[in-house]
Nucleic acid binder design. Sequence first.
DNA 1: GATGAATGAGTGTTCATTCAT
DNA 2: TATGAATGAACACTCATTCAT
Lengths: 188, 188, 188, 188
Amino acid sequence: MSKKDNIIKAATQLFATQGFDGTTTKQIAEKAGATEPLLYYHFTGKDEIYTSILISVHEEYFSHLKTLQGGTDTQFERIENLFKLHFQLISQNPDEMVLMVTSRPAKLNDPENVCSKNAQSRIKRLRYYLSNCLKKGIKSNEFNKLRTKETTDTLMILIDGILQQGAKAKKKLVDSIVSLLQKSLVAK
Amino acid sequence: MSKKDNIIKAATQLFATQGFDGTTTKQIAEKAGATEPLLYYHFTGKDEIYTSILISVHEEYFSHLKTLQGGTDTQFERIENLFKLHFQLISQNPDEMVLMVTSRPAKLNDPENVCSKNAQSRIKRLRYYLSNCLKKGIKSNEFNKLRTKETTDTLMILIDGILQQGAKAKKKLVDSIVSLLQKSLVAK
Amino acid sequence: MSKKDNIIKAATQLFATQGFDGTTTKQIAEKAGATEPLLYYHFTGKDEIYTSILISVHEEYFSHLKTLQGGTDTQFERIENLFKLHFQLISQNPDEMVLMVTSRPAKLNDPENVCSKNAQSRIKRLRYYLSNCLKKGIKSNEFNKLRTKETTDTLMILIDGILQQGAKAKKKLVDSIVSLLQKSLVAK
Amino acid sequence: MSKKDNIIKAATQLFATQGFDGTTTKQIAEKAGATEPLLYYHFTGKDEIYTSILISVHEEYFSHLKTLQGGTDTQFERIENLFKLHFQLISQNPDEMVLMVTSRPAKLNDPENVCSKNAQSRIKRLRYYLSNCLKKGIKSNEFNKLRTKETTDTLMILIDGILQQGAKAKKKLVDSIVSLLQKSLVAK
DNA sequence: GATGAATGAGTGTTCATTCAT
DNA sequence: TATGAATGAACACTCATTCAT
């Protein structure tokens, strides 16, 4: 593994556990087995390390999201798949996912920043996916009548809640959430 | 309002929006209309400002939790009350509540720290309250059969998810969550 | 003498002898008997130390220039006075004067910068004073016919040449320049 | 043009406009279309780039100076020739000439350094040339009686003043200086 | 209770320079 | 010749904190 990769890996772990402001370039360099100036050879600065990590995390995340589209599933199965995908992602890349749902440091939080745009894009896509499932499911009487907007919000809270648990997230929890959702969403 | 209160208020807002590490003592002093040395007259340091805020937040929080105990309610009503209480709290003290559910800065995150202990205590109490409701409800056939542990986790995620929204949290969302829970928990 | 004054004095000497880029904040602090952070308590940064020095140098310089206006002197005496004033200034404040005529560091050299504006203002005033003397002297036949613009340039070169010598500047040199000018300017 | 020449050219321009301390090896490499390690292939370091430029500038300068010696000119013509030569040099090599008369960076300014020695040598030669002209001219009654030393200083100031103007230097100015000198030096 | 002045330790970053190829 | 990768030393600057009043 190249030193640049070491840096990215070390920074990802530290940012995920200590936050952006709580992590120093010295810590990153040490954990990566590199020196501080090397960080500045590969990146323009601490900001760009963080930003570039978040960009690649979102890229991979979005590529996974795309695999969900289509299929002959029921709407509930589509929602179930979304939850299972997120569990899979948090299991395989806990640091990356925690970083993705962690609140941005103030200085990188303006709406024009790439990180914010990616985060917004993620929310938009998830909401689109979920509200689409809900609307179709309601229309076809697969689901009970319910407020689409607020139910979408609720599902988002649950997804991000799972991601926030990081490596501690358990399959049992996701199964339980899914079965709870089935009872509340799917019409008898 | 005394200058000490100004400091507490300013620090609460800044910590809630920028995090502990992203907030400087200079910012706190300026926002409070005070000077930095005055912070050190009223507190032993930045850590203690943060800690003391979290302690008093938890104190008030716990005192509210206590009001919930007892009554002749059904178990679902007790759960509903818990959600409604949290919505009320986040509406009235958004910064405080956000601070309470925000992940601790690395340096104040060891298990022996008062903040961590309060956070653990909060989780324990909430879990106790919720799992108690669930168990009783299941026993009395008010609720469906379900895994107590995972369902408790789910409810915790929903509660903290609401709190994390800060001032943006809406009553409609809480209502929606409650009605969703009713369908999934309460037996037909 | 206050520490702030020490800083200004130390910085003036160092900037005059080593240039802006060749002087470090550490050097300034050490020479001033202070610590680096104190520089930042009294000034916003290295730039402002430099800038504020140059501003006050120009202020004092301009106040001296004003004392020259008026009088019943011949035009040549007015020019002579200007040279003698500059010799007096360089004798009393060699560092300050050297700093004033030294070329600006690239980063503080854009025309909108206060330093540049002061320098421009200085040139303008000197040129105005000198060309005024020359024009009047020519009109009244005190002076030979000569190109005002280029002669002004020449006198400016001589003045700044004297200033550039710093503490090494000698009265004899100025006297010699003045007598040389008399022969070349004043009509027989 | 070889890359080494590119480096020299780029460094000359940058040193002339930004000074030694204000110029980085990175800037030189970029402007030369080279990489930093290449600088160290051709030179031992930044110091040597600067030093070698100054050496070759002085070499060429001295070779020009030599062409002035001899001839059947009057002493004033010899002085005039010196001024015209310098105007020619600054017109053709503004960066090099500016670099030559610019004050040395502190770290290369000790008297044993080649740069300082060249600079001293230049001053010595110019002074020798000029004072020689003056003395002879005075002896032969071509010139007025005047202090040789101070007049030499004055002529040096004028020459370096012209060089300092870099590419902005105008022929008209030199002509004006020469005619001014004629009036003051040459006896009636 | 309150502050202007001051600081040790550290921050992110850049510098001239070197190494391996 | 030429360069991508790497570094020790230093840089300007900020941090939480303290002192004297």
